[in-house]
C-alpha cells in the first residue's frame, strides 16, 4: 500500500512535471523517459520507473501534436504506472501499464475542457488593460500555472489512490495464475516491439 504522505508527494511532483508539457517551458521533462525515473526515485524504485518510462516513451512516439490538436497525456500515464508498479512483483509492471493507458485519453479530455474554460480570463484581462491595471496579466498567468498544477495534482491523487487499491486487491489473483503471468511476460516482451513498429511507421511516412 502506498502511504498517504508518499501518495501526496508523488502527486505533487507529478503535477509539477506535467506543467512542463504545455504550461511552462517544454523542456520535455514531462516525457515518460524522464518522468518515469524521477517518480521511481520518489518511490525508491528507479529501475521500474526507467523501464516503464522507456516502454511508454516508445508507445507514445508516434503521437505528434499538430497545430492546435491536444495529444493524449503521456506524462500522466507514466506517472500513474510508475507509482502503481514500484516495489511490487514484476507482473505488476504490465498491469500498471494496462491500467494507466486509458488515463491518457481521460486526461486529454480534461485538458481540452480546461483549455476551453481558460477563455473566461480573456474579458478579465481586457478590462484590466483598459483600466491600466497591467498587473492583472501577471496574476492571470500565474493563476493559470497554478490551476494547471492543481488539475494534474488532483487527477493524479485520485487515480493513483483508486487504482492502487484495485491493484493491491487483484495482484495476488494474477500472480497465483502461472498462465496469466506467462502471458504478461510475453506482453512485456512484445510492448517495445510495438513501440518500435510505431516509430518506424511514423518515420517512413
Amino acid at each position: 500500500m502506498i502511504a498517504e504522505f508518499e501518495l501526496i508527494k508523488i502527486a505533487f511532483v507529478g503535477g509539477l512535471i506535467s506543467l512542463d508539457a504545455t504550461v511552462f517551458g517544454q523542456f520535455m521533462i514531462s516525457r515518460p523517459i524522464v518522468a518515469g525515473p524521477v517518480i521511481g526515485w520518489l518511490c525508491g524504485d528507479v529501475k521500474t520507473g526507467l523501464l516503464i518510462g522507456a516502454l511508454i516513451e516508445l508507445l507514445w512516439v508516434g503521437v505528434v501534436p499538430v497545430g492546435v490538436g491536444v495529444p493524449p497525456d503521456s506524462a500522466i500515464v507514466c506517472i500513474v504506472a510508475t507509482a502503481l508498479a514500484a516495489n511490487k512483483a514484476p507482473a505488476a509492471v504490465a498491469i500498471a501499464i494496462i491500467f494507466s493507458v486509458p488515463l491518457g485519453i481521460l486526461s486529454k479530455r480534461l485538458d481540452i475542457a480546461h483549455r476551453k474554460w481558460n477563455r473566461i480570463f480573456l474579458p478579465v484581462i481586457e478590462n484590466g488593460i483598459k483600466s491600466g491595471r497591467y498587473y492583472i496579466l501577471t496574476f492571470v498567468i500565474w493563476l493559470g500555472v497554478f490551476l494547471s498544477f492543481i488539475k494534474s495534482f488532483l487527477f493524479l491523487l485520485v487515480c493513483i489512490f483508486l487504482f492502487n487499491a484495485i491493484l493491491v486487491y487483484i495482484l495476488p489473483f494474477v500472480i497465483s495464475s502461472p498462465a496469466v503471468v506467462r502471458g504478461l511476460q510475453v506482453f512485456m516482451f512484445a510492448l517495445p516491439v510495438l513501440g518500435l513498429a510505431s516509430f518506424l511507421a511514423s518515420f517512413t511516412k
Binding site: 504545455t22 504550461v23 517551458g25 483549455r115 476551453k116 481558460n118 477563455r119 480573456l122 498567468i141 494547471s148
Partner: peptide, 11 residues
Amino acid sequence: FLLQAVWNFER
C-alpha cells in the same frame, strides 16, 4: 517560457 500558460481555444 510561459507562453502557453493560459492557452485557450478562442485566441
